[in-house]
Amino acid sequence: MSAIVVYIDQLDAPGKLSTTVSQLLTLARGAGEPVAVVAGPVSASVLAELGAQGVTRVLNSEQAELGEFLVATKADLLAQSAAAVSASAVLVENSAAGKEIAARAGVSLNAGVITDAVSVTTDGGTLVAHKSILAGSWTVEAQATSAVAVISVKAHSIEAAPAAEPTTPVVEAVEVAFSPASLGARVVSRTPRAASGRPELEDARIIVAGGRGVDGDFTPIEELADVLGAAVGASRAATDAGWISHASQVGQTGKKVSPQLYISVGISGAIQQKAGMQTSKLIVAVNKDAESPIFEIADFGIVGDLFKVLPQAVEEIKKRRA
């Protein structure tokens, strides 16, 4: 069976595998022999998790350069490790950094790179990536035509499941030869951003998003989100105004989300906003303008004032739960 490499970052949050990485390992195990390439330390608990996923080989480097520079050093580690195990495929998380690591490793390995896969299947031994393109208006299947395929995969591509037979992985240290240009862009300072305490937009089952219509006051949005256990999103008009962090922006230049339910509040539904949310299962819109384009794609639309509709809904939910 050919080696399928999964890239694992243990630099920012060491000691635990992210849920997405566990999903990638499950995927890799289904398609070949899973090999973990780890940037940063491999703790005992991580090793146990890798064993539970049926990983036999772990290639790892703790060279300081991996943490001091942007993605390029990590891509060097990944490409050199994938070449060392003659991998037929490389799977990476579809974060902004993950995509670039995939991109650069693809150049080194002369491999086709496919990003934003929502799932990966196999067709006669070849990996097939399924993705949504053109702002969610088309779905396509894509394959690499090269000897190695590099695919960055979104969260929830598969349900993570332990292997039938756990293994005892062997850790091999890799000495990465960094290319000089990889040591070019240095992180000189890092300021943590305040966490909201609410679910992450990409993981949330429900999102309540507010736009210019909230007029500076996100309280009704947050209160509805909190009774629903939802994440809070926003249009660019709201983030540009500084009412909420840019990290909450949904759309073409923000997060692309597909929750079970997206409640759009005081958002007109410009094309760039729709680009990030129109693949949601259900869309509810609250807008005081009946002509607003958001209603063209809403499963349930309410023409009304958000400052009346949302508090009433919050009270009603609390009442029904009491």
């Binding site: 496919i114 394959q143 809403a298 009304g304 004032d305 009433q312 009270e315």
Partner: peptide
């Protein structure tokens, strides 16, 4: 180094129910 082997247009979303608030929309 990549090729698209299949493509399908997602059915366009259509408008569902639209109501106007007359006091009980919440």
């Amino acid at each position: 180094l990549t090729k698209v082997t299949a493509a399908a247009e997602r059915p366009a979303r259509t408008a569902g129910t639209l109501i106007t608030d007359s006091g009980d929309a919440g």
